[in-house]
Write a protein that binds this DNA or RNA. Sequence first.
DNA 1: CACTGCTATGATATCACTGG
DNA 2: CCAGTGATATCATAGCAGTG
Length: 361
Amino acid sequence: MLVMVLMRAAHVADLDLNLLVTLDTLLQERSVTRAAERLGVTQPAVSHRLRLLREQLDDPLLVGGRGSLHLTERARQLAAPLGRALLDVRAALRSGEPFDPARSERVFAVVAGDVGEMVVLPEVMSTLRVEAPHVTMTSPAAGGDVVARLASGEIDLVVGAPLPPQAGLVQRVVGRERYVVLARPDHPAIRRGRLSARAFADASHVVVSRGGPPGSSVDEALERLGLRRHVAARVSHFVTAPYLVLRSDLLLTMGESLARTAARHLPLALLPHPLTLPSFDVLMTWHERSTGDEGHRWMRELAARVTARSFQARPARDVSASASGTRPESAPDRPAARRPPPAAGAARASPAAGARPRAKR
DNA sequence: CACTGCTATGATATCACTGG
DNA sequence: CCAGTGATATCATAGCAGTG
């Protein structure tokens, strides 16, 4: 794809590939000044490279003037394939490169949702503190097109529910979760420490609306018994729902691991679910380019270890490959590219420029 | 209209490479 | 070893456009 787009350049054979790193940064920053800061060179140097790119690609690429530059149609076409290509190149260079957790200062972006942030992240952090004190873990918001964010390198790893099968993604089952009920300990529906299906249906409920499965599978199970329930509250986060349960007669159906975490910190009763509900897999998902990355592999193993402990532990298994292309991880493990570090000079492609300190006048 | 923040450009310096 | 050359960098500054 990138080649197809570049083929339209007037002199493809003469194209300086080092300039593509600058172009990628320019397309992201839409500013010569900011691109220069990111690349660790002066603004005029980037301006000069931009002029060369314009000549070689026979297109103005960025137009506008002060403030933010605008991408031309040609630049827009180049942005995505160029970004992916450079991520692949960086991943290829990183593949096989040894990773030393004790010394690494890498930043891993792991989307885990509120369940993962509450259940998995604290465990991961306590391990990091000992094994990899300089590694930083960020947990970006789960919204948006997670698949695209994995592909773009914005996210390194997703822990949670399965993602729709997609070419280039690898998924690995790391745990299994079943549903339980959280309630106030003196909830009137609880009789001798038990909750019947009838009492469950008669009570009022709080539902985490973006969570889909709990609400729908609970209602389906009730329907099979000829029962219905009253949903009195809907919230958007699993983390906040237990607080509603604490101060009401509401019942909350949620995954056992987060329920146990909540019950450890709040005076709540955790009850086996009275309905027959399907349990569900907890998966890790990443981009295939990361499979061979030693650092990414280390992070995956850590996340898998912690997740398996937090959720119902069971041997990790691969998700079968689907027609649309999501690939299982063949061995317990293979690699990854992450965003280029924002540090100055990190994306520099010219060995000569990168290797020697330049004299200042 | 001055100020500010941006990009573009000319002059020049530095470095690596090459050939005598 | 050294001068010539090319690539690429910095510095200084021109010019443009939005803003108050």
